[in-house]
Amino acid sequence: MAQFDALRTGSISGARAAEIDEGLRAHMNKVYGTMSVGMLITFAAAWAISGLATTTDPSLAVGQIGTDTYLTATGAAIYTSPLRWVIMFAPLIFVFGLSAAINRISAAAAQTAFYAFAAVMGLSISSIFLVFTGTSIAQIFLITAIAFASLSLYGYTTKKDLSAMGTFLMMGLIGLIVAMLVNLFLQSSGLAFAISAIGVLIFAGLTAYDTQRIKTEYVAHAAHGDTEWLGKSAIMGALSLYLNFINMFMMLLSLFGQRE
């Protein structure tokens, strides 16, 4: 926060402060723009894949999942075969891989990898179009977007240092992931409800925290002219906010979505 405080209090020269402030706005626009494109890729991929997975023609079906709705061979491979485990954990592997490789690849390669990750995430969550109504998905998405925008705006504008809550939120996130893995085997509806409710709070907090972190990291590195790092930082910042949005959306959908 030191560089950010220096910028805010004016201890950085006026011309340099104005330059950093202008660069910060461009940096945040790139973060939100990259995140938005990733979101578009994810939901387009999820919708397209769900279409390939279902049919209304019984002659093409390998199983029935609803009134006049059948599962195709593609759908059976994605949702009922052992391949589903690969699809489930593929986004997590992508995140770890991109995080580990970010210092060895270019900003352009990192952006391409992010968009590939967004497509894989679309495959992973495509079942929402089979489980929930389209209206419900749209409503929850709108609610999530409004909440996300409000929380991110708070993280960007607040004078309060949110770094202290970062460790607490990360500990909560680790506990949440462990609980989710355990519930894959327990299949407890009560535990699933608790995971979703707590998860919404954790990712809401992370949205504000990550927004402020992205902002302060930009100010710290811009003061030293680390342009290559800043390009990669925008991609990783977009990834952080994207994950917060997707997870908050999925957990709100689990809590309040209307099922088919």
Rank of each mutant, 00 (worst) to 15 (best):
A2C: 10
L7T: 12
G14Y: 10
A15W: 11
A15P: 08
A15I: 10
E19M: 13
N29S: 14
K30I: 09
V31F: 05
G33T: 03
M39I: 13
M39H: 11
I41A: 08
T42S: 03
T42E: 01
A46I: 01
I49F: 03
D68Q: 12
G75K: 00
I78R: 02
P82T: 14
L83H: 07
R84Y: 07
I87N: 15
M88F: 15
F89D: 08
P91W: 02
A100P: 13
N103G: 15
R104G: 05
A107N: 12
Q111R: 10
F114E: 00
A116L: 06
F117G: 03
F117R: 01
G122C: 01
G122Y: 04
S127V: 15
S127I: 15
F129Q: 10
T133Y: 11
T133D: 10
T133Q: 13
G134C: 08
S136D: 12
I137P: 00
T144A: 14
F148H: 02
S152Y: 02
L153G: 02
Y154K: 00
Y156R: 05
T158L: 05
K160I: 09
M165V: 13
M165D: 15
G166Y: 11
T167W: 13
I174R: 08
V178A: 09
M180S: 10
V182N: 11
N183Y: 02
Q187N: 13
S189A: 13
I202P: 01
T207G: 00
Y209I: 14
D210M: 09
D210I: 05
T211H: 12
H224S: 15
G225P: 11
D226S: 13
L230K: 06
A238W: 02
L241C: 07
Y242V: 08
L243F: 06
M248G: 06
M248R: 06
F256D: 04
